[in-house]
Protein backbone atom coordinates (compact mmCIF):
# COMPACT_ATOMS: atom_id res chain seq x y z
CA UNK A 1 0.00 0.00 0.00
CA UNK A 2 1.42 3.31 -1.00
CA UNK A 3 0.85 6.51 0.88
CA UNK A 4 1.20 9.84 -0.82
CA UNK A 5 3.39 12.52 0.72
CA UNK A 6 0.29 14.66 0.95
CA UNK A 7 -1.55 12.12 3.07
CA UNK A 8 1.48 11.66 5.28
CA UNK A 9 1.68 15.31 6.18
CA UNK A 10 -2.00 16.06 6.43
CA UNK A 11 -3.31 13.13 8.37
CA UNK A 12 -1.72 11.55 11.38
CA UNK A 13 -2.78 7.92 11.59
CA UNK A 14 -3.78 8.37 15.21
CA UNK A 15 -5.54 11.66 14.70
CA UNK A 16 -8.86 10.35 15.98
CA UNK A 17 -7.27 9.55 19.34
CA UNK A 18 -4.98 12.55 19.71
CA UNK A 19 -5.76 16.17 20.42
CA UNK A 20 -4.22 17.47 17.23
CA UNK A 21 -4.93 21.02 18.39
CA UNK A 22 -2.30 20.41 21.08
CA UNK A 23 0.40 18.99 18.81
CA UNK A 24 3.38 19.49 18.74
CA UNK A 25 3.77 17.97 22.18
CA UNK A 26 6.29 19.09 24.79
CA UNK A 27 8.39 15.93 24.84
CA UNK A 28 12.06 15.91 23.77
CA UNK A 29 13.17 14.32 20.52
CA UNK A 30 13.87 10.58 21.02
CA UNK A 31 11.86 10.49 24.25
CA UNK A 32 10.15 7.13 24.67
CA UNK A 33 6.77 8.67 25.42
CA UNK A 34 5.69 9.20 21.81
CA UNK A 35 6.10 5.50 21.07
CA UNK A 36 4.27 4.53 24.23
CA UNK A 37 1.32 6.81 23.49
CA UNK A 38 1.16 5.35 19.99
CA UNK A 39 1.13 1.89 21.51
CA UNK A 40 -1.84 2.88 23.69
CA UNK A 41 -3.71 4.45 20.78
CA UNK A 42 -3.07 1.41 18.59
CA UNK A 43 -4.17 -0.94 21.36
CA UNK A 44 -7.42 1.00 21.80
CA UNK A 45 -7.99 0.79 18.07
CA UNK A 46 -7.12 -2.89 17.89
CA UNK A 47 -9.61 -3.62 20.65
CA UNK A 48 -12.27 -1.64 18.71
CA UNK A 49 -13.25 0.12 21.92
CA UNK A 50 -15.84 2.87 21.92
CA UNK A 51 -13.74 6.01 22.44
CA UNK A 52 -16.53 7.56 24.49
CA UNK A 53 -16.08 4.84 27.04
CA UNK A 54 -12.44 5.35 27.93
CA UNK A 55 -10.99 7.71 30.51
CA UNK A 56 -7.29 8.47 30.86
CA UNK A 57 -5.94 9.82 34.14
CA UNK A 58 -2.40 11.10 34.64
CA UNK A 59 -0.41 12.58 37.46
CA UNK A 60 2.48 15.00 37.17
CA UNK A 61 5.69 14.79 35.20
CA UNK A 62 6.60 14.23 31.57
CA UNK A 63 4.39 11.15 31.40
CA UNK A 64 1.74 13.04 33.32
CA UNK A 65 1.15 15.06 30.20
CA UNK A 66 -0.19 12.04 28.32
CA UNK A 67 -3.76 12.67 29.48
CA UNK A 68 -3.60 16.05 27.82
CA UNK A 69 -2.79 14.63 24.41
CA UNK A 70 -5.35 11.83 24.30
CA UNK A 71 -8.63 12.75 22.65
CA UNK A 72 -10.61 10.96 25.31
CA UNK A 73 -12.17 12.08 28.58
CA UNK A 74 -8.89 12.86 30.24
CA UNK A 75 -7.79 14.12 33.63
CA UNK A 76 -4.48 15.68 34.56
CA UNK A 77 -4.43 15.49 38.35
CA UNK A 78 -1.89 16.25 41.09
CA UNK A 79 1.48 14.61 41.66
CA UNK A 80 1.01 11.02 42.74
CA UNK A 81 -2.78 11.13 42.89
CA UNK A 82 -3.75 9.85 39.47
CA UNK A 83 -4.59 6.42 40.88
CA UNK A 84 -6.90 7.50 43.74
CA UNK A 85 -8.61 9.99 41.41
CA UNK A 86 -9.08 7.10 38.98
CA UNK A 87 -10.43 4.90 41.78
CA UNK A 88 -13.23 7.42 42.35
CA UNK A 89 -13.85 7.84 38.64
CA UNK A 90 -13.97 4.08 38.09
CA UNK A 91 -16.42 3.54 40.94
CA UNK A 92 -18.67 6.27 39.56
CA UNK A 93 -18.36 4.90 36.02
CA UNK A 94 -17.56 1.19 36.19
CA UNK A 95 -18.70 0.68 32.60
CA UNK A 96 -15.83 2.81 31.35
CA UNK A 97 -12.27 1.65 30.79
CA UNK A 98 -10.11 3.61 33.21
CA UNK A 99 -6.47 3.93 32.23
CA UNK A 100 -3.87 5.57 34.43
CA UNK A 101 -0.86 6.66 32.41
CA UNK A 102 1.97 8.16 34.43
CA UNK A 103 5.63 8.02 35.29
CA UNK A 104 7.71 6.07 37.78
CA UNK A 105 8.25 8.95 40.22
CA UNK A 106 4.57 9.83 40.14
CA UNK A 107 3.21 6.30 40.52
CA UNK A 108 5.65 4.59 42.86
CA UNK A 109 7.33 7.37 44.82
CA UNK A 110 4.85 10.08 45.80
CA UNK A 111 1.98 7.84 44.69
CA UNK A 112 3.45 4.56 45.93
CA UNK A 113 0.92 4.08 48.69
CA UNK A 114 -1.98 4.47 46.26
CA UNK A 115 -0.32 2.07 43.83
CA UNK A 116 -0.04 -0.79 46.31
CA UNK A 117 -3.47 -0.28 47.85
CA UNK A 118 -5.27 -0.07 44.55
CA UNK A 119 -3.53 -3.26 43.43
CA UNK A 120 -4.47 -4.85 46.76
CA UNK A 121 -8.13 -3.97 46.23
CA UNK A 122 -7.89 -5.19 42.64
CA UNK A 123 -9.70 -2.14 41.33
CA UNK A 124 -10.51 -2.76 37.68
CA UNK A 125 -8.16 -0.36 35.92
CA UNK A 126 -5.02 -0.38 33.81
CA UNK A 127 -1.90 1.36 35.03
CA UNK A 128 0.77 2.11 32.46
CA UNK A 129 3.99 3.25 34.07
CA UNK A 130 6.63 4.77 31.86
CA UNK A 131 9.89 4.15 33.68
CA UNK A 132 12.79 6.30 32.50
CA UNK A 133 14.72 5.79 35.76
CA UNK A 134 14.66 9.49 36.61
CA UNK A 135 12.56 12.56 37.43
CA UNK A 136 12.72 14.18 34.03
CA UNK A 137 10.27 17.10 34.16
CA UNK A 138 12.06 18.62 37.14
CA UNK A 139 15.52 18.19 35.66
CA UNK A 140 16.85 14.70 36.26
CA UNK A 141 16.67 13.88 39.96
CA UNK A 142 17.07 10.43 41.49
CA UNK A 143 13.94 8.26 41.42
CA UNK A 144 12.85 5.15 43.33
CA UNK A 145 13.62 3.30 40.10
CA UNK A 146 17.09 4.75 39.45
CA UNK A 147 19.50 1.78 39.20
CA UNK A 148 22.32 1.52 41.72
CA UNK A 149 25.34 3.64 40.77
CA UNK A 150 23.44 5.59 38.07
CA UNK A 151 23.91 9.34 38.27
CA UNK A 152 21.23 11.93 38.51
CA UNK A 153 21.19 15.60 39.45
CA UNK A 154 20.58 14.65 43.09
CA UNK A 155 22.78 11.56 43.09
CA UNK A 156 25.79 13.24 41.52
CA UNK A 157 28.21 10.57 42.78
CA UNK A 158 26.01 7.70 41.79
CA UNK A 159 22.79 6.34 43.31
CA UNK A 160 23.39 4.25 46.43
CA UNK A 161 19.71 3.42 47.18
CA UNK A 162 18.19 0.12 46.17
CA UNK A 163 15.58 0.70 43.46
CA UNK A 164 12.10 -0.81 43.22
CA UNK A 165 11.50 -3.78 41.02
CA UNK A 166 8.11 -2.64 39.75
CA UNK A 167 6.75 -5.96 38.48
CA UNK A 168 7.49 -7.48 41.88
CA UNK A 169 5.87 -4.55 43.65
CA UNK A 170 2.73 -4.82 41.49
CA UNK A 171 2.53 -8.61 41.69
CA UNK A 172 3.08 -8.79 45.44
CA UNK A 173 0.47 -6.07 45.97
CA UNK A 174 -2.15 -8.09 44.12
CA UNK A 175 -2.15 -7.09 40.42
CA UNK A 176 -3.88 -9.55 38.10
CA UNK A 177 -1.74 -8.70 35.08
CA UNK A 178 1.89 -7.59 35.07
CA UNK A 179 4.07 -7.07 32.01
CA UNK A 180 7.21 -5.16 31.18
CA UNK A 181 8.41 -4.04 27.77
CA UNK A 182 10.69 -1.34 26.49
CA UNK A 183 9.81 1.49 24.15
CA UNK A 184 11.62 -0.49 21.48
CA UNK A 185 9.18 -3.42 21.62
CA UNK A 186 6.37 -1.48 20.02
CA UNK A 187 4.26 -4.37 18.82
CA UNK A 188 4.66 -6.44 21.95
CA UNK A 189 4.01 -3.38 24.08
CA UNK A 190 0.87 -2.61 22.09
CA UNK A 191 -0.31 -6.16 22.58
CA UNK A 192 0.47 -6.03 26.30
CA UNK A 193 -1.49 -2.78 26.70
CA UNK A 194 -4.42 -4.34 24.83
CA UNK A 195 -4.28 -7.38 27.10
CA UNK A 196 -4.03 -5.19 30.17
CA UNK A 197 -7.03 -3.09 29.15
CA UNK A 198 -9.04 -6.25 28.49
CA UNK A 199 -7.97 -7.80 31.75
CA UNK A 200 -10.46 -7.67 34.59
CA UNK A 201 -8.80 -6.22 37.68
CA UNK A 202 -5.71 -4.17 38.38
CA UNK A 203 -3.44 -4.59 35.36
CA UNK A 204 0.03 -3.12 35.19
CA UNK A 205 2.38 -2.49 32.30
CA UNK A 206 5.85 -1.10 32.91
CA UNK A 207 7.45 0.55 29.92
CA UNK A 208 11.21 1.07 30.04
CA UNK A 209 11.71 4.23 28.04
CA UNK A 210 14.68 6.37 27.07
CA UNK A 211 15.23 9.81 28.51
CA UNK A 212 18.01 11.12 26.32
CA UNK A 213 17.97 14.64 27.71
CA UNK A 214 18.63 13.69 31.30
CA UNK A 215 19.17 10.04 32.13
CA UNK A 216 21.33 9.30 29.10
CA UNK A 217 23.23 12.56 29.29
CA UNK A 218 23.94 12.41 33.04
CA UNK A 219 25.13 8.82 32.68
CA UNK A 220 27.00 9.31 29.41
CA UNK A 221 24.91 6.73 27.63
CA UNK A 222 24.75 8.52 24.31
CA UNK A 223 21.62 9.51 22.45
CA UNK A 224 18.07 8.24 22.66
CA UNK A 225 18.90 6.06 19.70
CA UNK A 226 21.83 4.56 21.62
CA UNK A 227 19.45 3.66 24.43
CA UNK A 228 17.12 1.97 21.93
CA UNK A 229 20.13 0.01 20.65
CA UNK A 230 20.93 -0.89 24.23
CA UNK A 231 17.38 -2.25 24.68
CA UNK A 232 17.76 -4.17 21.45
CA UNK A 233 20.96 -5.84 22.63
CA UNK A 234 20.08 -6.28 26.29
CA UNK A 235 16.36 -6.94 26.60
CA UNK A 236 15.68 -10.59 27.27
CA UNK A 237 12.17 -11.82 26.66
CA UNK A 238 11.16 -14.22 29.39
CA UNK A 239 7.40 -14.71 29.69
CA UNK A 240 6.33 -16.03 33.01
CA UNK A 241 9.62 -15.02 34.63
CA UNK A 242 9.66 -15.04 38.41
CA UNK A 243 9.14 -11.40 39.38
CA UNK A 244 11.81 -11.83 42.04
CA UNK A 245 14.31 -12.16 39.24
CA UNK A 246 13.53 -9.14 37.11
CA UNK A 247 15.48 -6.46 39.00
CA UNK A 248 17.20 -3.89 36.81
CA UNK A 249 20.81 -2.98 37.53
CA UNK A 250 22.69 -0.16 35.89
CA UNK A 251 23.07 -1.06 32.19
CA UNK A 252 22.25 -4.68 32.98
CA UNK A 253 20.14 -7.08 30.98
CA UNK A 254 16.49 -6.07 31.13
CA UNK A 255 14.10 -8.97 31.46
CA UNK A 256 10.85 -8.21 29.63
CA UNK A 257 7.67 -10.15 28.99
CA UNK A 258 4.37 -11.01 30.59
CA UNK A 259 5.01 -12.06 34.15
CA UNK A 260 1.57 -12.32 35.76
CA UNK A 261 -1.85 -13.10 34.29
CA UNK A 262 -4.28 -14.39 36.89
CA UNK A 263 -8.00 -14.29 37.63
CA UNK A 264 -9.33 -12.67 40.77
CA UNK A 265 -12.60 -10.89 41.61
CA UNK A 266 -12.40 -7.12 41.32
CA UNK A 267 -13.07 -4.53 44.00
CA UNK A 268 -16.58 -3.83 42.75
CA UNK A 269 -17.42 -7.52 42.36
CA UNK A 270 -16.27 -8.10 45.93
CA UNK A 271 -18.23 -5.06 47.14
CA UNK A 272 -21.46 -6.22 45.51
CA UNK A 273 -21.06 -9.89 46.39
CA UNK A 274 -19.98 -9.19 49.96
CA UNK A 275 -22.86 -6.86 50.70
CA UNK A 276 -25.41 -9.04 48.89
CA UNK A 277 -24.31 -12.06 50.87
CA UNK A 278 -24.95 -10.31 54.18
CA UNK A 279 -27.80 -7.94 53.35
CA UNK A 280 -29.69 -9.95 50.72
CA UNK A 281 -32.64 -8.03 49.29
CA UNK A 282 -31.86 -5.05 51.47
CA UNK A 283 -28.71 -4.41 49.47
CA UNK A 284 -28.92 -1.96 46.62
CA UNK A 285 -26.25 -3.20 44.20
CA UNK A 286 -23.85 -0.59 42.92
CA UNK A 287 -23.74 -0.18 39.17
CA UNK A 288 -22.33 3.32 38.95
CA UNK A 289 -24.04 6.59 38.25
CA UNK A 290 -24.20 6.58 34.48
CA UNK A 291 -27.94 7.12 34.59
CA UNK A 292 -27.55 10.27 36.61
CA UNK A 293 -26.45 12.61 33.85
Amino acid sequence: MSVSANQMTEEHPMEKLLRMDRIPHIWCPTCGLGTTVTALATAIDDLKLNYDNIAVVSGIGCTGRVAGYMKLDSFHTTHGRAIPFAVGLHIARPEMKTIVFSGDGDLVSIGGNHFIHTARRNVDMTVICVNNFIYAMTGGQVAPTTPLTARSSTSPYGNYEHPFNLPRLAASSGATYVARWTALHVRRLTQAIAEAISKKGFSFVEVIAPCSTLYARLNKLGSGLDLMKFYHDNAVIKHGADVNEVDIDFQSKIIVGKFVDIEKPTYLECLNEGNERVLGDKYKPWGGCNGDN
Binding site: R81, P84, F85, A92, R93, M96
Partner: peptide
Amino acid sequence: ASMAAILGASSGGA
Protein backbone atom coordinates in the same frame (compact mmCIF):
# COMPACT_ATOMS: atom_id res chain seq x y z
CA ALA B 1 -6.28 9.54 48.39
CA SER B 2 -9.67 10.29 49.98
CA MET B 3 -9.75 13.80 48.61
CA ALA B 4 -8.49 12.67 45.18
CA ALA B 5 -11.08 9.90 45.03
CA ILE B 6 -14.02 12.17 45.79
CA LEU B 7 -12.89 14.45 42.95
CA GLY B 8 -12.60 11.50 40.59
CA ALA B 9 -16.02 10.15 41.53
CA SER B 10 -17.58 13.59 41.27
CA SER B 11 -16.09 13.92 37.79
CA GLY B 12 -17.81 10.62 37.05
CA GLY B 13 -21.19 12.11 38.00
CA ALA B 14 -21.55 11.21 41.67
